[in-house]
């Protein structure tokens, strides 16, 4: 089971922007990639708990400021290191509104990888 939550609008999140939103206990990274593509992933780096929203987004690749881990935000896959991926939330766009689906299982949703 999961619920849809309105988390931001396209005016909050310009193309090229990343932002952090909270839904219950979940910290979520929103990213607006080139071509009106919006993605939602775990907001905390799977490596050592840095907030990903403070990272640098260059095209599709986000570099975490903590230890420069890189993630492809098209897919959530780790670029470097590559053996790691971000937990992804489904995203729905209706008009300006961005909504994110968060499972209602009461558990935190993130992947961890120690490097």
């Amino acid at each position: 089971m999961s619920d849809w939550h309105d988390v931001a609008t396209l005016d909050d999140l310009w193309e090229g922007d990343v932002a952090e939103v909270a839904v219950g206990p979940d910290t979520i990274l929103l990213a607006h990639l080139p071509g009106r593509q919006v993605r939602a992933y775990q907001g905390i780096c799977p490596h050592s708990e840095y907030s990903l929203a403070g990272g640098d987004l260059d095209g599709d690749v986000l570099t975490c400021t903590g230890h420069l881990w890189e993630f492809d935000l098209r897919t959530g896959e780790g670029v470097n290191p590559s053996n790691c991926r971000l937990y992804e939330y489904p995203v729905r766009l209706s008009g300006e509104q961005i909504a994110v689906s968060v499972p209602t299982d009461g558990r935190p949703h993130y992947n961890r990888c120690r490097g």
């Binding site: 396209l10 005016d11 310009w14 193309e15 090229g16 922007d17 987004l57 260059d58 095209g59």
Partner: peptide, 10 residues
């Protein structure tokens, strides 16, 4: 003066 219309400039 270089607003790209809700797109972050690179």
């Amino acid at each position: 003066i270089a607003d790209a219309g809700r797109r972050r400039l690179n």
